[in-house]
């Protein structure tokens, strides 16, 4: 195991380092993300590829490193998204529940402040999110929706690129122990 791999793997002390957020931040930030997704693409349609609620869920799970709270947080954000769509309620809820759980599990093992790892995780979770949503749409609702792999991979890269500065920004909202 070299230095780099040691840096990627979080040590035991970091595993215990669970980020804390103010309750208001926990409510307002996802609402802003959902609002952004609802409002901004009206004027800039190209920006609709951005899945901000997913990135917020990811960031919370990766920094919180607590599977139960992360999956509940993901479920809540997903249900809000479902409520604003014309799909059955629970589709985004299930997907984001799983993302929250897996991201928290990953956060316990890896140093998620590493930008390369953040990029890879952003890409992976976006692709997982889209693929699983497509599977649920076909399996549970019986809708014959096409899965555009090329577009999903491209948007995965773009979301991962956005995740880097966004996570930096969200890190500043964390409650540090000495404050």
């Amino acid at each position: 195991m070299n230095d780099y791999s040691e840096r990627l793997l979080a040590d035991s002390s970091r595993r215990k380092d669970k980020a804390r957020f103010r309750p208001l931040i926990l409510i307002v930030v996802p609402l802003i993300a959902v609002l952004f997704q609802v409002y901004v693409p009206r004027f800039f349609p190209f920006i609709s590829y951005l899945e901000l609620p997913l990135l917020i869920t990811m960031h919370f799970a990766l920094t919180r490193r607590e599977p139960i709270s992360s999956l509940l947080y993901g479920a809540a954000i997903g249900l809000v998204q479902d409520s604003l769509s014309n799909q059955k309620i629970g589709m985004y809820g299930i997907v984001k529940t799983l993302v929250g759980y897996f991201a928290a599990s990953v956060g316990m093992r890896f140093d998620t402040e590493n930008p390369i790892l953040t990029f890879i995780l952003g890409f992976f979770f976006y692709s997982f999110h889209q693929f699983f949503y497509w599977v649920l749409t076909r399996a549970l609702l019986g809708q014959l929706v096409n899965f555009d792999l090329q577009q999903t991979l491209l948007f995965g890269v773009l979301n991962a690129a956005v995740a880097l500065p966004l996570f930096r920004l969200l890190d500043k909202l964390k409650v540090t122990p000495h404050t």
Partner: peptide
């Protein structure tokens, strides 16, 4: 907890599909 939350949401979807009803309160 994960299984319980996912199962609850699956039941919610199944209810909506089966009864063709929505969950108006959440929306």
């Amino acid at each position: 907890v994960l299984l319980v939350v996912v199962a609850a949401q699956l039941l919610l979807i199944a209810y909506q599909v089966k009864t063709s009803k929505d969950v108006p309160l959440l929306r």
